[in-house]
Design a protein around this nucleic acid. Structure first.
Lengths: 204, 204, 204, 204
DNA sequence: AATGAATGAGTTTTCATTCAT
DNA sequence: GATGAATGAAAACTCATTCAT
């Protein structure tokens, strides 16, 4: 049991080191030597915990994206579209901003990985899509020509990442806004659009 | 004259080969040897036309993103927000879908390149931002709490790329929709939101 | 301990191989592949011990020139100019002849290397100059128009290398002379010149 | 005839360009492209006048070393050892200093060339040796144990190059001395040595 | 005779991964 | 379990020389 605890601590220690080195040098630029050094273990030890360097990346993606989102999707039981979306975005924006370089490193590499893709589709996109369908159903269906839910999913997903990964890096003005404000505005944008009257329309 | 034509043809030929190889193997995975082979020239010849492998990437980014968008921004003089956005998105979606693997390879690398970043900010983001500001000014000002224009820019940009780069790869259902349809829905989403009544509201 | 011994043995083994390959093909002509092969290690192993091919050159220059000369300068405490110069030259001539091709390869490259140049000036030229100044002070001051010490230094240095690097390669007759003989004659040449009466003047 | 004149002018023009580029970048660092550019001709034209890049080097060595020394040896008919040596050294020092970077580039490469070696031995060393033997005969033979003429040759040769190629680069103090002064001191050094009374001994 | 586009062999260095200790 | 020395494949880029025009 102590062994098990040790092993897990070591794993976590290595993963933390990898996060740090990836954030600094990117996935390609991070050498296993540097990660081992940062973790205070021998280079060979890395490979007892993670079969390849890429597995470090996957584990980090799991820890920093899949798991928190999944947890969030399970937790957020609100049915009010506005509140739901706003909360979701706030948390994601906050988390991503806190680890921006790491997130950038992650997103630069993961798109091509089949394992990630499946994890992503099964554990994030699918539930998210459900939510979009059910939680936002009313909103969606009030329209004459209802929007394609997958499209909405990817538009929101893309907007979230466009704002963080690109926007925050390229536009200091934007980076200075607090996540709550960004989340509120994005929610308003997605719920009532550019031409909507306000983010809290009369009648609510 | 013949020389000039030859040289340009040769350059185009190499660039086409690079596009092909990048699309297939990604930037990192593409070897100069493979590109040369695909172009039917010696490896050294590559470097007569492009001083660096990275310059091939830049040239492709220029040709497939900067130039067409710039041209589009100059051409699209409509002041109707809906029409403007819809046309813009349609064209971009069409072009990106036609070269999806290449676009993916491109977007994987560009964030880190300073030259691209500057070209991007100056020649795309800036004019686009202007459009967002001026063309959509009316819409924005009708709201009580106006949206941050930079946020809108990156949200639209992110959504566009989320839908193409990610969505089309991960969701065959989405990939099957015609660009016009996607553009129309995205426009509706951004103009009137999920709760909007339709994409062509009464009174228009 | 065993490790330390191993590592040093390995380093020595690689250095020896480099000496051999440099001697044969010159610095430029020596490929790291050839050196690795000669040392019986993988090419990558070379770079665990020497960060750069050029570092191999520096280490050899250090081992074959800087270190022995420095040691000699510290050891030779005789104040008799003739004996001092003669011993110095004898040892250098012997050593250089024993590794002539290597020395030639070394001297072809060192002039351009700043690290070598500094090591050379600080650890060889400077002390040597001191010796020329102090040990030969009497001799120099007896003249009406004393000679420039730096000039003497470089003349002796040049003569030494002219005789070995060039003379021995081009003139088999000269190469056949024993180093002691050459050293004695060079010393006589520098102390009493072509017109001097003998190399062991009356009264000594 | 005009053609012949043209061709020779072009040859000279290329050679001058090569001298310039070699002096600046060294032999290895000089690209044929740069030389062609400096000469104002196409790269291919180079090879109509000199079969290889190395031939440019040889021609320069011929022009800057072999020919002037040969000419000097033929001209200097003085039989006075001091005057002869002093004149020889003065001229060589002057010439070498005027083209120091070129001379350095030349001497870094030529040692290994068989053609140069033969030209050097036959057209310089041999005659020089004759002069050392005959002109300096008296001086040499007045000694009890006469010096080896080859040794003297290479010692002088080495000293000359040690002083210019190394000394002048490494010792600014030395580089500041006028060639005549250096030549006079070197001559004194070689004729009467460090212990000699003066460079113009009584009784002369 | 001049051009200059094309060639392609050749070389250093990096680094994830293995495995004997 | 941990170590870290050894591995060797892999890849961008240069440049003297050729030769069709």
């Amino acid at each position: 049991m102590a062994l098990r605890r040790d092993a897990e601590a070591r794993r976590a220690q290595i993963l933390a080191a990898a996060a740090q080195v990836f954030a600094r040098y990117g996935f390609r630029g991070a050498t296993t030597r540097a990660i081992a050094q940062a973790a205070g273990v021998a280079e060979g030890t890395l490979f007892r915990y993670f079969p390849t360097k890429r597995h470090l990346l996957l584990a980090l993606f799991e820890a920093f994206t899949i798991r928190p989102i999944q947890q969030q999707l399970e937790t957020l039981e609100t049915t009010d579209p506005q509140e739901w979306l706003e909360r979701f975005l706030t948390e994601r924006l906050t988390a991503m901003r806190a680890h921006l370089p790491l997130m950038q490193a992650l997103y630069q590499e993961i798109r091509t990985d089949e394992a990630v893709r499946q994890a992503f589709m099964g554990q994030i996109a699918q539930p998210f899509l459900e939510h979009v369908r059910t939680v936002l159903a009313t909103a969606l269906q009030r329209r004459q020509r209802p929007l394609h839910p997958g499209l909405v999913l990817w538009a929101i997903w893309g907007a979230l990442h466009g704002v963080t990964i690109f926007g925050m890096e390229m536009d200091p003005d934007l980076a200075a806004l607090p996540p709550e404000r960004i989340a509120r505005e994005l929610t308003a944008l997605f719920l009532w659009g550019l031409e909507g009257q306000s983010d809290e329309p009369a009648g609510r």
